[in-house]
Nucleic acid binder design. Structure first.
Lengths: 137, 137
DNA sequence: TTTAATTACTACTCTAAGGTAGTATTAAAT
DNA sequence: ATTTAATACTACCTTAGAGTAGTAATTAAA
């Protein structure tokens, strides 16, 4: 019951970026050093974020990254969905294919409440809303 | 945000076993076939469950497994703890070492409610309590 | 126009989880 | 005693996530 490193990194990257001046570009070097994420692994993630349209990249000297989509319109749930960490509605927690209201797995009823709350929390946590003043990067 | 296959299998194994006659031994073959878990992988898990004292094994012909600890005293949380899937209280969801009430990670406050509920649910879900009549194996 | 600083791409290595294979050990049935 | 059906042990293979290395492409500064 954990998030992948990639998801963790991405949430921290986006939360860091939203705290910077909106217009300014942020380089992979700055992100890597300040967030303590391996440089090469970070650039791989950034390229993915560019591909899906969350982030815009400016190449070449003085280049860097900035938001393409608004931070208020990207949720933690969106990030988890990118890296296969999202809790899908139809997916059984015990991995049983045909688990549904008619044929429930052993944990179905107890899990469903937690699941709904988790999904709601991830869906309502926009990157903007989680990047508060006092929070650690 | 998923459980490992090992945890999923184990919960299903124990829930299956608790539905059988208390005194009877259950073989790896029966478990593997009925739960559709690879035989060799299952025996590896069973050996681990014997080692930690949840299960007792009887070797030799006509042997098999049965509960050593009572199913009402084994929780889903116990199983998750065995296979490193438990949500540890001190562990930050974003992987930040020093995340606590003084220095919070970006998700700290929103995560904590879900975390507490999840932990409670896993702690209160005994193997006996989840192995209901109509549930799928 | 050259250099420096940046992102993008391709192709690896490393590690742990998941899974498999073969053999040893045990003990009841025959 | 021998056979058979069971668990236990050791060693391996496979896969995906995590991380690394080198180079190409891009673009502003010098």
């Amino acid at each position: 019951m954990h998030l992948s490193n990639t998801s963790k990194y991405t949430i921290r990257i986006l939360a860091y970026m939203v705290k910077q001046k909106e217009s300014s570009l942020i380089s992979a070097k700055e992100l890597s050093e300040n967030l303590n994420i391996p440089y090469k692994f970070l650039t791989k993630i950034m390229t993915e974020l560019v591909k899906v349209g969350f982030i815009e990249s400016i190449r070449g000297r003085e280049g860097g990254y900035k938001f393409l989509k608004k931070a208020s319109e990207i949720t933690v749930g969106d990030v988890l969905a990118l890296f296969n960490d999202a809790i899908k509605n139809e997916e059984c927690i015990l991995g049983i294919d045909s688990c549904d209201v008619k044929e429930k797995c052993a944990l179905h009823d107890k899990w469903i409440k937690s699941k709904v709350q988790l999904q709601k929390m991830f869906r309502e946590s926009t990157i903007e809303s989680i990047a508060g003043e006092g929070t650690k990067i």
